[in-house]
Design a protein around this nucleic acid. Structure first.
Lengths: 179, 179
DNA sequence: ATCAGCATGTAAGGCGTTACATGATTCA
DNA sequence: TGAATCATGTAACGCCTTACATGCTGAT
């Protein structure tokens, strides 16, 4: 596996639950984990190819119904070991880039209305995302008896907790700027 | 200026307050804004060079005391305009990559002790960072009368608010896993 | 017929990190 | 004298995004 490429682990993680096509992987990244990770086709397909060469995943014989090719990938024993090794590795980098905060930090060169506007834009986005996260939460609560769903639930809880913190900050920040 | 390179804006933002060397810029990135933005010499020096060509920054005549060269950069009128245009631009991408959450999401393939350990590692880091953020907060409160410091203060408040949310999540998550 | 969604893949280019190369100054 | 800090810069390499190229299937 490539040295530091996290997309490989994301793919292995998804494949550890069920066999998927590259297209399915993209869809799952865009829905369930999109608020804390991103991935594009241009990174997924090449990664799948290299991982196949490396023996981390393999193609499953697919019942091609005469249509366009459709490659369903399956995780191998080696792939599963790689995933577990990573889970047990104590180092984890959380790489956060808030352009919004950059605009706060340097906002002093402009009129305060600009900063106010930037807080409003952020707040609007956060409210929308939070709504979605709460929807996920409700759905997961119906199936929490299954072990795997507890892990999904934890990430959703994380999202809700931080997004609510964002909203509290918006309120405080607005108050400070307006006074 | 390069199309989407945010390091340029960071540099312009820092130079809008005071003239700095590339080395100074790196130091400021590593201290004040490190919890929401990163930057290395390998990106700062080339960016400064290109921005000079583009007329966004210029070299200030420096009193070289016979020692090693030391280039002090100054923001130009064009640079200031670029900075302001960016501040007024409504789009801002907050790009978050939490490897910790990835490990939560896929934690189901391993024993729950692994997930517990990963939460503990995260919590330890958060506690340390939070201590530092609170130290910054106290120092800023002494100089809050100055307009610029209000903007710095806002980012620190953001950090504290979210890091405290992280800790609340750690507690909840631990409880869920242990039950 | 045509459009959205399914499906795979490549190419160009941008951005960034790490490691390396170089050398001065200051302090123990 | 040696280490830490100040100071600038380049080279190699890796990773990712965007845009493009291609074509099937099913619904309207």
């Amino acid at each position: 596996m490539a040295k530091d490429r996290k997309i490989d682990l994301v793919i292995l993680g998804l494949l550890s639950h069920e066999d998927l096509t590259g297209y399915d992987i993209k869809k799952q990244i865009d829905s369930a984990i999109s608020f804390f990770w991103k991935g594009s086709f241009g990174s997924i397909y090449p990664a799948l190819g290299e991982m196949e060469k490396g023996g981390l995943v393999k193609r499953r014989k697919s019942g091609n119904t005469g249509g366009r090719e459709k490659i369903i990938y399956q995780i191998t024993k080696t792939g599963m070991d790689t995933l577990k090794t990573w889970l047990n590795d104590e180092k984890a980098t959380n790489d956060l880039k808030y352009e919004t905060l950059l605009k706060m930090y340097f906002g002093g060169v402009e009129d305060r209305n600009v900063t106010i506007r930037n807080i409003e834009i952020f707040e609007k986005q956060v409210r929308e995302d939070l709504k979605l996260l709460k929807f996920y939460k409700e759905n997961l609560e119906k199936v929490l008896d299954q072990e795997t769903h507890v892990h999904y639930y934890l990430t959703v809880l994380f999202g809700i907790e931080t997004y609510e913190a964002y909203l509290r900050w918006c309120k405080k920040a607005m108050k400070m700027i307006l006074q």
